[in-house]
């Protein structure tokens, strides 16, 4: 039976790295100990000298992961459309920027390059010869608030349908397929501020049913809650969207069909998660349902454990969370 391939993205270790508490070597050693098959690095986060790291730094980095016997898999790059006030990047900027990043990815030994939808399908097509020449898989990340039906992603899908090239694809992030809020979402609020037990009940009802929000709010009031609980529910349980950023919750209907369709063009996936409990359940994301689809479709790529739950104060370490996540994925894969 095929086995799921695991990657760990170093992204989750960003706070420790950005505040200087841990070096890249410290982080790689922790990831090595977790025992995944490969790792992902976020270029503007941990590549020293980004966007043009020195030869010396590249050599030290390659020596480091080779010494640790680790496998580089995914090099995450961006389309920084916020760079200029009043405009997005131009095609010249997107094109040359991405080629430069692809070259560094290649030199450092990565074979998958994750970019963003801001790249646009037309520019992606112009990059195909470079992906072929460098033998890289260039993929755009499907991330909340987008879904497989978002027009910009449908354009990429049409490009992939037309070109049928293994060098282009998607990195699906589970933020586009959330059902509800994670179990730890209320942890940052002091207990005396709201009725947490009641709110957790509402959270589960929101995730697993289609009971209208107005009815859930009424239930809060009927069961001893008040205005504060309704405020918290609206802010944290019914959505994680903030303006054009963040994600929606799709309750019982995340886009399973779109997920299945996009799998054809996926070699790497962001197993976004916020918490896995001691029973290996990650509330808020239907991992069992998605793993079943992956198995049915004979998915052979990686799933990266991408932890984003530190801000919810889960009470266990990130390393423990990632270890649980990998165990959860393996268990679900075996059961599917």
């Amino acid at each position: 039976m095929s086995k799921l391939k695991h990657s760990v993205t170093l992204y989750g270790f960003g706070p420790e790295y950005m505040t200087g508490q841990q070096s890249l070597e410290d982080i790689l050693k922790q990831v090595k100990a977790i025992g995944a098959d490969g790792f992902e690095i976020v270029s503007p986060q941990m590549i020293n000298g980004h966007p043009n790291p020195s030869e010396e730094w590249i050599k030290r980095f390659v020596d480091l992961y080779q010494r640790l016997e680790m496998t580089p898999v995914c090099y995450s790059i961006y389309v920084d459309n916020g760079k200029h006030k009043g405009r997005f990047l131009t095609e010249d900027e997107r094109l040359t920027w991405t080629i430069n990043e692809m070259e560094y990815a290649k030199r450092m030994g990565f074979r998958i390059v994750r970019s963003q939808e801001g790249l646009l399908a037309g520019t992606m097509e112009k990059l195909l010869p470079y992906a072929e020449a460098l033998d890289l898989h260039l993929a755009v990340e499907l991330h909340g608030p987008h879904t497989p039906e978002s027009p910009v992603f449908r354009e990429f899908e049409r490009l992939y349908e037309r070109t049928q090239s293994p060098h282009l694809g998607f990195v699906m992030d589970f933020s586009s397929f959330l059902s509800g809020a994670p179990a730890t979402v209320l942890n940052p609020l002091p207990d005396e501020l709201c009725h947490k037990e009641l709110l957790h009940k509402i959270r589960r009802l929101y995730e697993t049913t289609e009971i209208p929000v107005e009815q859930l709010n009424q239930q809060i009031l009927d069961e001893g809650g008040d205005e504060v609980d309704i405020y918290v529910a609206q802010k944290k349980l019914y959505t994680d969207r903030h303006g054009k950023m963040g994600s929606d919750y799709f309750r019982t209907s995340p886009d399973y069909d779109g997920f299945r369709r996009y799998l054809k063009y996926s070699q790497y996936m962001h197993g976004k998660f916020f918490h896995v409990d001691e029973n290996l359940v990650s509330e808020g994301i239907d991992y069992p349902g998605f793993i079943r689809i992956m198995k049915e479709e004979n998915y052979r790529g990686f799933v990266a454990s991408e932890y984003e739950g530190g801000r919810h104060l889960p009470g266990i370490t990130q390393v423990e969370e990632i270890e649980r996540h990998i165990r959860m994925l393996d268990k679900l894969w075996e059961e599917a």
Binding site: P44, Y78, V79, D80, N81, G82, K83, K85, G86, R87, F88, L89, T90, E91, Q116, E117, G118, L120, H143, P145, H146, V152, G243, K244, M245
Partner: peptide, 24 residues
């Protein structure tokens, strides 16, 4: 400060009026 990246997309100034994450 603007975010470095966002999820509204376009080329140059095309469609920039939609980019609330950069306009705000």
């Amino acid at each position: 400060r603007r975010n470095d990246f966002g999820h509204t997309v376009g080329n140059g100034t095309d469609g920039y009026e939609e980019a609330q994450e950069f306009l705000n």
